[in-house]
Design a protein around this nucleic acid. Sequence first.
DNA 1: TATTGTTATACTCTATAACTATA
DNA 2: TATAGTTATAGAGTATAACAATA
Lengths: 156, 156
Amino acid sequence: MSTVSPNPPPEPATASAGTDLALAADLRVTLSRATRRLKAERGEAGLSDPQFNVLAILLREGPTSPGRLAEHERIAAPAMTRTVGCLADRGLVRKDEHPTDGRQVVVSLTAEGEAEVAETRRRRDAWLSARLAGLDTEDRAVLTQAAEILRRITAS
Amino acid sequence: MSTVSPNPPPEPATASAGTDLALAADLRVTLSRATRRLKAERGEAGLSDPQFNVLAILLREGPTSPGRLAEHERIAAPAMTRTVGCLADRGLVRKDEHPTDGRQVVVSLTAEGEAEVAETRRRRDAWLSARLAGLDTEDRAVLTQAAEILRRITAS
DNA sequence: TATTGTTATACTCTATAACTATA
DNA sequence: TATAGTTATAGAGTATAACAATA
């Protein structure tokens, strides 16, 4: 086990304040850099982040309306109208009438769209797992735990 | 609505072969989500990511040319011209003549620009450290090590 | 009247190509 | 000729406001 770098002696109760802030700054920079590098790995279509995100939502949650997509991404409806239009033009999504509500539009993934998501994820996972393969068991265990912790605090 | 078979959620990594790929997928999603949440915390000026990044580079590396900034951010020079122009209009950076090379422009942070970076970082660190404060010592140690590991593999 | 989606308009960020000024 | 920066033009993404169609 790599050493858990025992906390320096001082400051019993209030130590966490300064420590948290230093770790926060360190984590902030590191997470940002890692994410940026990861997103540089893209699929064939070379989709933008917003475009890819829409495909990913559709794959995860199934067909839905532009309004729901906009809400999910916390952007205004007209922006999603354009993004969905772009994806439809490229054949990555399909727009159909809602069966019962004439106002709504149902956006769904095409086979091409699904393949694009899979390809992009495959590349990103490949890049990351190639680097994880260079780590020892201990380090991988740390990252596994870290992912769980980050998931927890990000959910709040 | 008959959904298009949404993907099952990523399985938590277990200790066996093929773990790298599972951990990679898990980390990828987690890092992305954490970073997105962090960047939602912004300073007074409400700068965009590219704008803020320029200020951060200038603070870290000192005055430099638009060309260097563009290279650093891996964007084309004209895009940086506009971003720097925007920041100059808002008084966050200053553009001066290069002392010896008449072609070059020297971009540097103003006091306002420096304050904006500090304010944004303060908010992001505050958000993150507030969540770190809710963790036990062991979890914080894990994140400390994880930051070091991520920094190492991202540098490659 | 409320909801859903679109169109109209404007601003930012990005790119490539062409141009100016300097080295 | 090469380099640094800008301007011109175009496409994507974002926003707000106004509109059309439907519930």
